[in-house]
Structure formats: structure tokens, C-alpha cells
Design a protein around this nucleic acid. Structure first.
Lengths: 144, 144
DNA sequence: CTGGGTCATTACTTTTGCTAACGATATCAG
DNA sequence: CTGATATCGTTAGCAAAAGTAATGACCCAG
């Protein structure tokens, strides 16, 4: 350890390395459903936040609207999302998950979580409790 | 919250989301030295593990050798890495960081940690202690 | 000393994102 | 009410980055 863990910069170093490494491991566990990462992310966003317009989805995923057009087209072609007209504005559309989309997303999530659940089972209950609390703190860190 | 946080799968869901989100935030903090993420990752790998051959580096970063050839060429052009002949096998090369490469990497790391340190300062000492312990547990999770 | 395997590279293709421009629709000033 | 302006999604064209196939130099077992 180059820096002491008891200082704030020391904690920042350690936490950054730990979080980035675990994130890499988790990412590597993703099932290759031949969906690109962006496609998967769009699907997940629709699942979490419900139906959205293409532009909203693009902003949420930090992608330009034309790129999202292609993502949506690909997802629609595979029957994972559905477009419906906007109730009051005929320029806009609403994109939402289909049952198939929800199913694929659940399967993918299950596979990624399987690896992590297995690892978590090897910990002591106290260690899991620490992670539970840490998870809440990490969320607050990300939001600020 | 779709799942309870008190079960192991529930913890797996929560932890995965927390870790991935914080990792995205940390990644976004990277200084835009106009190096691609892959280039930066290769540089970091050389820093962590010392000199490597292009093929080793490609395997480590999960890209194909031709892609790594290009990454190395770009880094070499900027004077961040240096190639040296392999001592016993003339087919191979060894790639290592230059002083400039090490310096750029350190600057980038500092910038990312500055953001994190700032956030950590807003926490209570108890919360920081929780994160300290969690960091060690996360490391063990990644290694297994 | 030779034939098969390995390493890095080159050439080409695919994927994925961007900007610019456009048609359809909405909204606002007057 | 109407002409100007803005917004939404899309198309077209381009650039970056990664992948596959093929190649030349080199190593090594027999």
C-alpha cells in the first residue's frame, strides 16, 4: 500500500481501485446476447424509468439522438421494444419495453448477479452488512 | 427498491448498481488528454505490471493483437511508452512506460481522486470507516 | 536443416458514434 | 389567424476504434 488507508486521500485511492476493479469484473460477466452495451443500457433505462421518448433516452444514455435512433431501430427489429405515438404531440414517440425485452433483460441481469451472489455467499454476515451500508453511501457519492 | 436489501440477491442487485454507477462517475472524471480509454488502460496496465509484450498487453486488456499494435503505436508517437527488443526472442518486443507516460498517468489519477476526495470529505467519520472496511471486502470479491 | 507454430504487423471490414441537414409538427409574436 | 421559429425524429455522410484474414520474420522440435 503506497498510501495509508486512514487518510482521506488514502481512502480515495483505495476505494477508486476497489470500485473500478470490481466494475471491470462485473462488466466481464455480461452474457453475450449479441446486444451492444449501448443497446443493453437503453433497455435497462426503459426498464428502470418506464416509457420515454427517443430524445429523452438519448440524453439519459449520453448519446446523440441519431445514435439512439439506430439503437431503437435495432431493438425494435428484435422485438425488444415497441414505439407508440405520443398522446398529445405528434412529433414525438414513446418507446417502451415489450415482454420479450423485459425477459431478455431479466435473464442478462440474473447471469451477472449469479457471479456476484456466489461471491457474497462466501462472506460473513457482518461483512455483508458492511457492504449493505457501503452500498447506500456509494449511491450518495455518485449523486452529488 | 424492487428487491429487499436484506437478502443476498438483493444485496447483489444493490451493490452491482452502486459499484457500476460510481465507476461510471469516476471514469467520467478522467482528464481529457485526448487519449482513448483503451490507451489509458494500456498505460495503467504497464504501470501496474511493468513491461509486457504487445500480445500480453492485448490479452490483459481483452483486445485483439492488431488493435493493441495500434494503441502502442499511438502511445509511442506521444512518447508515453518505449519499445525494447526482447532479450532472447527476436520476434517479440517489450513495451514499457517512459517518464512522460508515468507522469501523465499520475496526473490523470490525481484528477480523478480529487473529485472523490471532495465527496469523501462530506461524509461522517463513521461512514468513511464503513467505506474503508468495504474497500477491503470488495478487493477480496474481485480476486476470487 | 526444415516444417510447423508464434509474434507483430498490414490490409480490409464492421461497428458505433458523431455532425449536418431535412421533413413534419408545434408554438409563439404580432 | 398567420408567418416565423423551434423542436422532434430521421436520413446521409463521415470518423474513430475494434475485429478478422493474411503476411513476413523468427523460433524450435525432430
Amino acid at each position: 500500500m503506497p498510501q495509508q488507508n486512514s487518510t482521506i486521500p488514502g481512502l480515495a485511492v483505495a476505494l477508486r481501485i476497489s470500485v473500478m476493479r470490481l466494475a471491470r469484473r462485473l462488466r466481464a460477466q455480461r452474457s453475450d446476447t449479441s446486444l451492444s452495451l449501448t443497446q443493453l443500457a437503453a433497455l435497462a433505462a426503459l426498464d428502470r424509468r418506464g416509457q420515454m421518448t427517443p430524445t429523452e433516452l438519448a440524453q439519459h444514455e449520453k448519446v446523440q439522438p441519431p445514435s439512439m435512433t439506430r439503437v431503437i431501430a435495432a431493438l425494435e427489429e428484435r422485438g425488444l421494444v415497441r414505439r407508440t405515438p405520443h398522446p398529445t404531440d405528434r412529433r414525438q414517440q414513446l418507446v417502451e419495453l415489450t415482454t420479450d425485452g423485459r425477459r431478455l433483460l431479466a435473464a442478462d441481469r440474473r447471469r451477472r448477479e449469479a457471479w456476484l451472489s456466489l461471491r457474497l455467499r462466501e462472506l460473513t454476515p457482518q461483512e455483508r452488512e458492511t457492504l449493505r451500508q457501503a452500498s447506500l453511501i456509494l449511491d450518495r457519492l455518485s449523486q452529488s
